[in-house]
Design a protein around this nucleic acid. Structure first.
Lengths: 183, 183
DNA sequence: GAGCATGCGGACTGTCGGTCCGCTTCGATG
DNA sequence: CATCGAAGCGGACCGACAGTCCGCATGCTC
C-alpha cells in the first residue's frame, strides 16, 4: 500500500469516529465521512468497499484489544480460567465496549443489516461464547444461546437498558442471563 | 373512510404480502408495492404514513389472532394457566408465526430499525412476556430478560436456526432458554 | 343532482450508496 | 536525479428509493 493510501485510510477511520461521536449513528452518509476526512468518495470506496466494510473495520479496530485479551492467558478472560468466569468477564468487557461505542454499534448494525452473521468480529465473539457455553456444558443449544446472549448488546437494547441504570445495570442484567444459561 | 379508500387499503396490504412471499424481504420498494396494488404512491403514503407504518400494520394484522389468544382464557396461552406454561405456549406460537412470516419479520425489522421498541405489536409482546417472567418470579431483570427472549425471533437469527432443524429446533431452543430464565 | 370533503395518482425532490474514468502521485529502477 | 508504470485519487455521475405536493376525480350527503 502506498503511503498516501495508508494516510487516507487512517484519516477516513478517524473522520468516521469523530462523526459518530458528534452526530450519533444516524445521518452519517459516506459523502460526509469522505468530506470530513478531506478525501474523495472514490477513495473511501476503494479502501473499504462499502458502507458495511467501513463500519466492520472500525468495529474490528475497537474490538481488537478484547480479541487479544481473550486469547492471552493470565486474566479472568483468558484461557486457563474456568469457562464460567471467562464468560462473565468477557460479557463485562463487551458491556464496557458497548457503552463506549454505542453509536458505532448502532451504525455497524445498520450497515450489516443483511448478513449480520457474517461480520468477522461478531463471528469471533459468537464462536468464543458458544465454546464457553458448551464447555460449561448445560443441556442447551449452545450456538443459539450464544446468539441470544450476544443479542444483549444490540445497540437499541443496550441503550434502552443503560438509560435507566447505566452500564452497571447492563452488566448485571447480562450476568444474570448468562448465569441462568449456564445453570 | 370512503369505500374506495378501504378497498385500496386492503389492496395495498395484499400486494405487500404477495411481494414479500414472492420476492423475500429485500428490494421491496414502496413504488413496487403501490404498482402491484394498482394504486398511486400517494395513496399508499396517505394510508400508512411511511414504510414503517405499512409493515407495522401488516405485522399487527398477522399477529392479531395471537394477541387475542393471549387474553382469552381457556387455553395454555390464556389467563388462568400457570405463567410458565403460558410463556412456553406463547413462545411456541411466536415461533410458528415467525416461520410462516419470516419475510415479513425481516421487512418489519428493517423498517423499524430506528425505534424498534416503539412498535405496538412488539410492545404488547414485550409487556406480556415481562409480566409472565416477573410473575414466575426469578431474581432477574424481567424487562431485560423479555427483550433477550424476544430477540430469539429476530428474523436473521430465526432463519439461521431454522436452516438446520426447522421450527422444531427454534421452538426447542427457545423453550430451553425460557426455562433457564425462569429457573 | 349539486356541492364538497375525501381521496387519488404520479411527477417531482432530495439523499444516498456505489461506479467510473481521466488525472495525479508515489516510489522502484538505473 | 530523471523516468515511467503502477497505484491511487477525486468528484461528477447514476440509479434507486422514501417521502411530498397539488390539480383532478369520486363517493357521499342533502
Amino acid at each position: 500500500m502506498r503511503s498516501d493510501a495508508t494516510r487516507n485510510r487512517e484519516a477516513i477511520l478517524r473522520a468516521a469516529e469523530e462523526l459518530l461521536a458528534s452526530q450519533g449513528a444516524e445521518h452519517i452518509s459516506l459523502d460526509r465521512v469522505a468530506a470530513a476526512a478531506g478525501v474523495g468518495k472514490g477513495t473511501l470506496f476503494r479502501r473499504f468497499g462499502s458502507r458495511t466494510g467501513l463500519f466492520q473495520e472500525l468495529l474490528a479496530e475497537r474490538a481488537s484489544a478484547l480479541a487479544q485479551a481473550i486469547e492471552s492467558p493470565g486474566s479472568a478472560l483468558g484461557p486457563g480460567s474456568p469457562p464460567e468466569e471467562r464468560l462473565l468477564a468477557f460479557l463485562d468487557e463487551l458491556a464496557e465496549l458497548a457503552e463506549r461505542n454505542l453509536a458505532l454499534f448502532a451504525a455497524h448494525e445498520r450497515a450489516c443489516a443483511e448478513d449480520k452473521y457474517r461480520d468477522p468480529t461478531y463471528l469471533r465473539w459468537h464462536a468464543h461464547v458458544t465454546a464457553l457455553i458448551a464447555e460449561a456444558g448445560p443441556g442447551l443449544d449452545a450456538e443459539f444461546a450464544a446468539h441470544a446472549l450476544l443479542g444483549s448488546f444490540d445497540a437499541d437494547l443496550a441503550r434502552h437498558v443503560m438509560a435507566e441504570g447505566g452500564v452497571a445495570r447492563l452488566k448485571s442484567s447480562v450476568r444474570g442471563l448468562a448465569r441462568a444459561i449456564l445453570a
